[in-house]
């Protein structure tokens, strides 16, 4: 029986000219089969590094090392040799990245780029499958369209091609890192709809990084909030969004006064910027920006269990609830 993705106390260390940094610091995330999970947080919080670290997409020239556990169906991905890792990529876990133009081979037709993922050797069968895939992601599935090159398509269409590529391996888990950034606002919503539709239809699990909290509340069951390399709050989406336990989550939600408003119309942002990895060594990493910061925050805040699956890394709720670990 599949148990899905389990990440525990997972850290990523990178080599930089200024020394080793830890943009991902003891992160724990779980995605059970068919579950839809969101990972949110401002830019630079380490969301991409978390996903890349788990799926081993950090070039050796940059990676210093990972620690903790990142396993799929009980198999630790970090321990796999190259060949066994390839069995997971594409076929069990597929990835959709942002910036679709750069993600597609400029000299290959989009049809060929989807088709090459298919396992079957039968040309007819492959063609039927590609056609079906194009249709399911909302693309024109005519032969002429499939013969076009990435630069001939719009940003939204390219992103759909990337989704089709991800689906072509019939994976169990789809990991999407800001799949709609850099697209028109209206297109963004359509693409996210497409992703959630296909994921639901196929009963796939989804781990998505997005800034669109509206989409998170509509389509995801569980949410992790990340700040400066740490998970600061996690829980069922409804519970977290109704009553955020961490001041950072409260700040993020306050930025979206009305979740149905497009991004441009969100007026407020949290003042200040995310501290770069390594710049805050002790105490709460959010305290320089936290409206509720007080004396105790100079010490590392505990991870407290609020109710059920909900946890928050903050001194405030710990007054009313017990520690999680």
């Amino acid at each position: 029986m599949s148990t899905g993705l389990a990440v525990r106390d997972f850290s990523v260390a990178l080599k930089t000219p200024a020394g080793v940094i830890r943009p991902v610091d003891e992160v724990s995330i779980e995605v059970r089969p068919s579950q839809r999970v969101a990972l949110v947080g401002e830019s630079g919080c380490g969301k991409s590094m978390t996903l890349r670290g788990i799926l081993r997409f950090i070039p050796p020239s940059v990676l210093d090392g990972v620690s903790g556990e990142a396993s799929y169906d009980g198999v630790d991905l970090a321990q796999l040799d190259d060949r066994r890792l390839r069995d997971y990529r594409g076929r069990r876990i597929a990835m959709v990245f942002q910036d679709a133009l750069a993600r597609l081979n400029p000299t290959m037709t989009v049809g060929a780029q989807v088709e090459e993922v298919l396992a079957t050797r039968d040309r007819r069968a492959r063609e039927t499958q590609v056609t079906a895939l194009f249709r399911s992601v909302g693309l024109d599935n005519s032969r002429a369209f499939r013969r076009r090159y990435p630069h001939e398509l719009s940003g939204g269409m390219r992103q759909r091609v990337l989704i089709a590529i991800a689906l072509a391996g019939d994976p169990e888990l789809l990991v999407a890192d800001e799949p709609t950034t850099a697209l028109d606002v209206t297109v963004q919503a359509q693409i996210l709809d497409t992703i959630t539709d296909v994921v639901r239809e196929r009963g796939m699990a989804l781990l998505v990084v997005t800034h669109d909290l509206g989409v998170v509340s509509e389509t995801c069951e569980f949410v992790y909030v990340m700040y400066a390399g740490q998970i600061v709050e996690s829980g069922l989406v409804d519970a977290v969004f109704d009553d955020p336990g961490h001041p950072y989550t409260q700040g993020l939600l306050a930025c979206v006064l009305d979740v149905d408003e497009p991004v441009e119309q969100r007026v407020r942002t949290i003042p200040g910027v995310v501290p770069p990895p390594g710049s805050v060594t002790t105490g709460c990493r959010f305290r320089s920006r936290c409206p509720a910061a007080h004396d105790r925050c100079a010490a590392d805040p505990p991870v407290v269990r609020l109710d059920g699956d909900r946890t928050a890394r903050c001194w405030l709720p710990s007054d009313t609830a017990g520690e999680a670990s």
Binding site: L55, F57, D82, R83, R86, D87, Y88, R89, G90, R91, A94, M95, F97, D99, A102, R103, L104, N105, P106, E116, V117, L162, I165, A166, G169
Partner: peptide
């Protein structure tokens, strides 16, 4: 990046 896409496809 598109080489990474190819890697994500599970290719050797």
């Amino acid at each position: 990046p598109y080489v990474e896409t190819a890697r994500a496809k599970g290719f050797s």
